[in-house]
Design a protein around this nucleic acid. Structure first.
Lengths: 144, 144
DNA sequence: GAAGCTGGTTTCCAATGGAAACCTATCCTT
DNA sequence: AAGGATAGGTTTCCATTGGAAACCAGCTTC
């Protein structure tokens, strides 16, 4: 988390200073937009949001679906996303208590963008892996 | 960041296991898609890619524009993005050597999705901040 | 020859992420 | 009633990561 950088070259008060008409400056360290970006530019958040597109999912269901996520990080990420108003947490007093996580309307607006990222990764996986292989082959000495 | 705790220069050969027909699950831990997602679901990578949309930018220019990024992280992120084939690094033997970073065609295909994220953050910043305030107010002492 | 520009790397330290154990509560089995 | 399973977490421990700042190296200007 940044939010501690100095206004280098732009000694403006935080908050208002980045509400420029367009294009915005997400690049300003003090900008709240950066805080938002901090949250959603997260591997697990992307996977969780994408997973919730089909409807509400329970905690352990998410945990099993999103392979490799730890309970701690899942819990933390869900809390952050809930705090940001992107998803809702519903507790049902069933037998072993059931907790369902679902996208909020706000969260729903994000998932399109998020899905675009996830699907880009799927579609361009091969190209990226090829690029990595080429890069690694060059690694060490490149006459350029 | 690395799922299996291995150095990032050596992608696992477990790639085939997730090459299901379609859509292969980003949710599988060993899936290369996850490695791709790992890279692009990153705060700084998003800002860098978005910053390069207008054309090539030099190292220190990026550093000054993207407030709060450290040289180390900028360098590391640029290397990762270059390795993934998303951007290119051009060295010009000018007086103090000039290094320009630019989007590759592959990177260009990503920036639309990435820009969508950045712009979503800009547009929905207020809603997110309001949600956070509401959440924090509840968290204090609201049993109901 | 000190300072400043370029583009980095290195060092130190605190925050984060992952693995696995632990906790609370309610069933089901034995 | 003890033991296990399920559900939803929290806690603990430790390795990796991110950030701040120092350092490095080539070349120019003062």
């Amino acid at each position: 988390m940044v939010t501690s950088g100095k206004p280098q070259g732009a000694p403006e008060p935080a908050g208002e200073s980045c509400r420029l008409p367009w294009p915005f400056d997400v690049y300003e360290a003090q900008c709240p937009t950066r805080m938002v970006l901090d949250r959603i530019a997260d591997k697990w958040a992307v996977l969780i949001l994408d997973r919730l597109r089909d409807g509400p999912v329970r905690f352990n269901h998410l945990r099993r679906d999103i392979k490799g996520i730890s309970q701690k990080v899942l819990s933390q990420t869900l809390k952050k996303l809930e705090r940001d108003g992107l998803l809702s947490r519903a507790v049902f007093p069933t037998v072993p208590v059931t907790v369902e996580y679902a996208l909020t309307p706000l969260g729903r607006t994000l998932t399109d963008a998020v899905a675009a990222i996830a699907h880009w990764a799927e579609r361009n996986m091969d190209a990226v892996l090829a690029a990595q292989a080429a890069y690694d082959a060059r690694a060490g000495g490149d006459p350029g």
